[in-house]
C-alpha cells in the first residue's frame, strides 16, 4: 500500500465497488458450483467468475495502478483478452467430453443425437 493515498477518494470508492462486486460474482459462481444438482447445470456457474467477475476485478486493478503510478498501466487487458478467448474453449471441450462420455454410457439425461423434435 505504498502510494494509494494519491488516488482521489471518489475513484477509490469506484475501485472498491468494482473489486467487491467482482469478488462477489466469483463467490456466487463457486456457491453455484457446489449447490447445483446436475453436472450440466454446474458447468454454468463458474462462468460468472470468469466473465463479469474477472472483468470487474481487472478494471479495479487497472484503475488502481494507473492512478497510483500516475501513468496508464494496461497490461491487465492482456489477461482479460486471454481469458475471454480461452474460457469458452476450455468449457466447450469439457462439456463435449462429458457429453461423449454420457452418450457412450447411454445416460438417459442427454439427447443421444441432435434431432429436431
Amino acid at each position: 500500500m505504498n502510494s494509494a493515498d494519491v488516488i482521489p477518494l471518489p475513484i477509490a470508492v469506484l475501485i472498491c465497488g468494482c473489486l467487491l462486486a467482482g469478488a462477489f460474482f466469483a463467490l456466487a459462481g463457486a456457491v453455484g458450483l457446489v449447490r447445483l444438482k446436475s453436472f450440466y447445470q454446474r458447468v454454468h456457474a463458474p462462468t460468472l467468475g470468469s466473465s463479469l467477475g474477472m472483468g470487474l476485478i481487472l478494471v479495479s486493478s487497472i484503475l488502481y495502478f494507473s492512478l497510483a503510478r500516475g501513468h496508464p498501466v494496461l497490461h491487465e487487458i492482456l489477461i482479460a483478452v486471454f481469458l475471454t478467448l480461452t474460457t469458452p474453449i476450455s468449457l466447450m471441450l469439457i462439456v463435449r467430453a462429458a457429453l461423449a462420455r454420457d452418450r457412450f454410457e447411454g445416460n438417459p439425461d442427454v439427447p443421444p443425437v441432435e434431432t429436431l423434435d
Partner: peptide
Amino acid sequence: QDRVVALDAFYVSGMLLLITLGM
C-alpha cells in the same frame, strides 16, 4: 468432469486472488 470444471474455476479465482494481492 465435475473435478475438471472445478479445477478450471479454481485457477481462475486463484488468478484473481493474485491480482488483488498485487493491489
